[in-house]
């Protein structure tokens, strides 16, 4: 399903070069839920950026559903990402001037999913926000925002969800409730999940947990 082969990635600051990954190999099966843990600066965000195709590796290949990223041109890669990957962020990142319904509808519009409005309403109802459709992000609580973000990530049936600390900005109770919803929906849709977290409790919900240390997943 997702395969990272011999990835090499370094950042350059002036004459200095900071090696993030030297030879990273990683494989995730369809429907698998994988947690990635690691200290700050270990390269978790870089890994998510590489998987999402926003940045390119210096060397190595990334395959999603047998499609090699390097074979795609930038615009094709963007379309591929929009169709196949859903995102959930620590800071929710809802579009501030769109209400809950419109935020959820947006990926469906981009991917030309049929009946986007009905599907968005259905999803929002399933995350318990059927009564908050017309509310702007500024009118929602943290937990509600993250539930909208989950609905948004799932509406176009992506192959894989990349979740970056989804409960990091929520209190424990709200975080657990949001995680319950996320895992339930992912299971229902048989979607692959790659979840970056600092919380062992959240990681324990996944089938596999990796730790990113010195550019390697162990």
């Amino acid at each position: 399903m997702l395969e990272l082969k011999s990835l090499k990635k370094a950042y350059h600051q002036g004459s200095q070069s900071i090696e993030i990954f030297e030879n990273l190999n990683f494989h995730v099966k369809r429907g698998e839920r994988v947690a990635i843990m690691g200290k700050s600066g270990s390269g978790k965000s870089t890994l998510l950026s590489l998987i999402s195709g926003i940045i390119k590796p210096d060397e190595g290949d990334i395959f999603l559903n047998a499609t090699a990223y390097k074979d795609l041109k930038e615009s094709a890669l963007n379309d591929f990402r929009a169709t196949n990957i859903g995102f959930i962020f620590q800071n929710f990142h809802l579009v501030s001037y769109l209400n809950a319904l419109e935020n959820v509808m947006l990926p469906a519009k981009v991917c030309k999913v049929s009946n986007p409005k009905e599907k968005a309403i259905e999803l929002l109802k399933s995350v318990g926000l059927g009564h908050r459709l017309d509310h702007l992000p500024s009118e929602l609580s943290g937990g509600e925002k993250q539930r909208v973000a989950i609905a948004r990530a799932l509406i176009h049936n992506p192959k894989i969800i990349l979740a970056d600390e989804p409960s990091g900005n929520l209190d424990e109770e709200t975080g657990n409730a949001v995680m319950d919803i996320l895992f339930e929906l992912i299971k229902k849709n048989n979607t692959t999940l790659i979840l970056v977290t600092h919380s062992q409790e959240v990681a324990n919900r996944c089938e596999k947990t990796y730790e990113l240390v010195s550019g390697s997943l162990t």
Binding site: N78, T83, L94, V95, L106, P107, V110
Partner: peptide, 13 residues
């Protein structure tokens, strides 16, 4: 600025 990046992330051209 952030809304633009969010739209891009979702796949809006």
């Amino acid at each position: 600025k952030n809304n633009i990046l969010r739209l891009k992330m979702i796949g809006v051209k």
